[in-house]
């Protein structure tokens, strides 16, 4: 029983099958970039990619992720051809999006999966897609701008 996290195979101990993917990523795999915000699928802080699609890792049981490719914020750059920063991460830096920054890994993962599905989204599509990710610091305007920038530059 294994899952691939950022292209590394991780063996899942039998007794951990019922834990949430988020807890497994943070406390078993030791990758702390994926954040806990609500534990109930309401805030998007825990967003990762499963086989390239955005998923709320607090709502996924480890058993459901077995045999699949999980990408976390730490592995996002590794999914680009050059292995350097993902265009979304670059746009985030260029526009100085983060304030406290805590929600941003989730925002970035949602945006990256979204743009790979829809490379030139409309404003309304961006608003709708990004509304599952809360930012209490209120960086929505810059998030929006950075997505537009990343769409243009990639």
């Amino acid at each position: 029983m294994e899952i691939a996290i950022n292209s590394k195979m991780v063996t899942v101990p039998r007794k951990l099958q019922d834990v949430a993917l988020l807890d497994f990523i943070r406390d078993f795999a030791g990758l702390k970039g994926t954040k806990f915000g609500c534990g109930m699928g309401l805030c998007g802080a825990c967003t990762v990619h499963i086989d390239g699609t955005a998923a709320l890792s607090c709502q996924v049981l480890i058993a459901e992720a077995i045999g699949r490719q999980v990408t976390t914020i730490e592995g996002l750059a590794g999914t680009t051809p050059t292995g350097t920063l993902h265009p979304v991460q670059k746009a985030w830096i260029e526009d100085s999006v983060p304030q406290c920054g805590y929600c941003q890994p989730g925002q970035i993962m949602t945006a990256a999966a979204f743009l790979s599905r829809n490379p030139s989204p409309s404003d309304k599509e961006i608003r709708d897609e990004m509304s599952g990710n809360l930012c209490r610091c209120g960086t929505y305007t810059r998030i929006h701008g950075a997505i537009v920038r990343a769409a243009k530059e990639s």
Binding site: L31, K35, I73, E74, I108
Partner: peptide, 23 residues
Amino acid sequence: RSWRHQELEAIVTGQTVYSRDVS
């Protein structure tokens, strides 16, 4: 001048250690 925060790259790559990440 509009300096970018020195933590930006660490934040967008998930490297920043928040209080919840201490181990």
